[in-house]
């Protein structure tokens, strides 16, 4: 079976500094692939190149869809072929592409992403955030929207249904009409994933989805990622520092260091891999060989974790939109 995403010889540099050098890996369809590596290894840069935010200096990024193969790099940053130098239509297309950029085309090809630092539309409600993600799916003709034609209303209702379905799946239905900026941090991260899902992707790229989450939330997240893979026909590419999460849910791990792929394979194979240990710990050999050292010590399977006791009472969250605290006399 051909992989969903093929990345070959991806190179990128900022000024004189090489951020990526010949990065090559594949993402199998229906699998969870994790990119790990020390800080500054170039993981997020890979994401930014994949999703068109950066123009890579060289390399190929191919997405295999049922309709055919899409060359993501070419779609986002088209280069003019010498034979087209005098072709007015090609020139016009090039100029238009240069003016408008092409990041949006990646999403249309079926790749969605989240960000390391949450990027929500904070002053908009949860549902509005999700509707923005579905802007392509709702009727776009101006007059239809202004006059609220039947087709427009139907399309809007369908979009809302889709948004609500995802919210329910992630247990956030109750927050549908809250402002995104008011949500607690863990929910904001979840909302960002839901928003990416609302663009209807085949490949979901998550940039450190567990950063800042507590162990319980991380566990819920890993269950959710597995569920997306198993029941929603999604392929997932994730960057993560939480080795526990990576080792437990991923099918394939790519290790990056100094902008190069130093190893890749199954999670188990990566745990004792000398190059990986060197990159993380600065030593080539496992520290204590017998029971597997270094990384393995951090790895605790989810099943062996003690059950999280129910909290004695929910934390006090004061919602300024419903409670008028200052009005209550002490």
């Amino acid at each position: 079976m051909t992989p969903l995403l093929t990345v070959r010889d991806l190179s990128m540099h900022f000024g004189g500094v090489a951020a990526l050098q010949g990065v090559t890996f594949t993402v199998a369809r229906g699998a969870i692939t994790a990119i790990i590596g020390p800080n500054g290894a170039g993981k997020t840069t890979v994401f930014n190149c994949l999703t068109g935010f950066y123009a890579a200096a060289a390399g190929v990024v191919r997405l295999q869809r049922e309709e055919g193969e899409i060359d993501l790099m070419r779609a986002v940053h088209p280069t003019l072929q010498p034979r087209d130098y005098l072709n007015p239509r090609a020139l016009a297309r090039q100029a238009y592409g240069w003016m408008t950029g092409g990041t949006h085309k990646v999403v249309r090809a079926g790749v969605a992403r989240t960000f390391q630092n949450v990027r929500l539309f904070r002053d908009m409600t949860v549902l509005e955030n999700l509707l923005v993600a579905q802007h392509r799916l709702v009727e776009r003709r101006l007059w239809a929207g202004i006059l609220r034609t039947r087709e427009y209303l139907a399309a809007e209702a369908a979009a809302l249904d889709r948004a609500v379905a995802w919210l329910e799946l992630f247990g956030m239905f109750e927050d549908a009409n809250r402002l995104a900026g008011e949500l607690p941090y863990g929910q904001q991260r979840r909302l960002e994933i839901i928003r990416a899902l609302c663009t209807d992707p085949v490949l979901l790229c998550l940039d450190e989805p567990a950063a800042g989450l507590n162990p319980r939330e991380t566990q819920a997240l890993s269950r959710m990622i597995l569920r997306l893979r198993d029941h929603h026909d999604l392929t997932i590419l994730l960057i993560e520092h939480d080795m526990n999460l990576v080792m437990n849910i991923s099918d394939h791990v790519v290790v990056l260091d100094h902008g190069e792929v130093i190893a890749s394979g199954t999670p188990a194979a990566m745990q004792g891999h000398p190059a990986v240990l060197e990159a993380y710990l600065g030593v080539a050999e496992p520290v204590d060989g017998a029971s597997g050292g270094g990384l393995r010590e951090e790895v605790v399977p989810v099943s062996s974790l003690p059950p999280v006791p129910p909290k004695p009472r929910p934390p006090l969250i004061i919602d300024p939109s419903v409670a008028d605290i200052e009005a209550c006399p002490p």
């Binding site: 900022f14 000024g15 997020t44 930014n48 935010f53 950066y54 960000f115």
Partner: peptide, 8 residues
Amino acid sequence: GHPEVEKV
């Protein structure tokens, strides 16, 4: 000037 690298 240096080309501005967008912080994503």
